[in-house]
């Protein structure tokens, strides 16, 4: 039967033209999406003199990794990396824990005024007081120029709470009830039953949360104007991209003139910008393959609102 089908509908010329155009169109768009990353990469690992002349466009030449090593000399990039990495790890871990726990609690019908508190948490997705009141609130709490400003406000994430809640509701309640009959407390049930069963959804929110944390830039820009040591990588990159092309301003002022001259051979403003961009992109590209599995789960579950 199937064979017959295929025979009956032979591909016409129109089909061929459509298919070719379609493939070509997608190929071009895909290239447009990845070529810039490739371009930045080859410019960071190629011979710096050639890069400066603009002759590295498609193929890397004179490959070296000195640019990446030389980044150590760039002003407080190390602290920015530590701040960004630590806030990503701590912030994500706390957010996942809190989302799991709150998601579990709001499925419990016994909670005093449960509906009200659930809505109290969820409604915050749909309104905000605005940037300035938010900023004034943060400064009133003493969180401007303070590391905790990255962590504490992100702990309660309403959207993720919805995701976890929806997921827990799909778990058969008998599991929990039997544990309860055996005398397990709420904490024990959460730790021994809910947490292991929710791992897929927790992985989803963890990965999206981590990417969000890594990428967040506005909070650093607005809340850390004076604490340069607390600014994130994204913020530093923003500053470097917009800074004048004067290389000296990017480098440690303490280094001697000889050292700076030697450095000029290795680094120039162009490669330094590209290299910082690259180290900011690389972690995202590294977790990306793991993320892909969770795309659809994350998106489709989001469509189910509680």
């Amino acid at each position: 039967m199937k064979k017959k089908h295929k025979k009956r509908y032979k591909r016409t010329l129109q089909d061929w033209i459509f298919d070719i155009c379609n493939h070509l169109g997608f190929l071009l768009f895909t290239l447009a999406c990845i070529f810039p990353f490739y371009y930045i990469l080859i410019n960071t690992i190629s011979d710096n003199n050639l890069v400066l002349k603009g002759s590295i466009n498609f193929i890397p030449r004179g490959i070296h990794i000195k640019n990446y090593i030389a980044l150590i000399n760039v002003n407080d990039l190390g602290t920015a990396a530590i701040v960004t990495i630590s806030r990503t790890i701590i912030g994500t871990a706390l957010m996942v824990l809190a989302s799991a726990f709150v998601g579990y609690l709001v499925t419990k019908k016994e909670v005093w005024a449960r509906k009200f508190w659930y809505r109290f948490l969820i409604v915050t997705m749909y309104f905000n007081a605005g940037l300035i009141p938010w900023y004034l609130n943060m400064s009133m709490l003493g969180l401007t120029d303070h590391y905790l400003a990255y962590i504490i406000p992100t702990i309660v994430a309403p959207y993720n709470i919805i995701l976890v809640k929806t997921y827990i509701e799909s778990i058969p309640s008998e599991l929990e009830e039997s544990a309860k009959i055996d005398g397990a407390s709420y904490f024990v049930i959460f730790r021994k039953i809910i947490w292991p069963l929710c791992k897929p959804i927790l992985a989803t929110i963890a990965i999206f949360g981590a990417v969000g944390n890594w990428n967040s830039f506005t909070d650093s820009l607005i809340l850390m104007p004076n604490a340069t040591e607390l600014q994130t990588l994204q913020h530093k990159l923003y500053n470097y991209l917009r800074a004048s092309t004067n290389l000296k301003s990017l480098m440690n002022s303490g280094s001697s003139t000889v050292g700076a001259a030697a450095m000029d051979n290795v680094l120039n403003a162009k490669t330094i910008k590209y290299t910082i961009s690259m180290i900011t992109i690389i972690p995202i590209l590294m977790v990306y393959p793991f993320m892909q599995r969770y795309f659809e789960k994350g998106i489709m579950l989001g469509a189910v609102k509680g």
Partner: peptide, 29 residues
């Protein structure tokens, strides 16, 4: 196609600007 067209969504706008910078700036591509 699906894999590589989704990547840009996961980089921040600062990085998008870095990309734009590498392609369209004075000594860009």
């Amino acid at each position: 196609v699906q894999t590589f067209t989704t990547i840009p969504n996961f980089i921040s706008w600062v990085l998008v600007y870095a990309v734009a910078f590498s392609i369209f700036s004075t000594d860009g591509f």
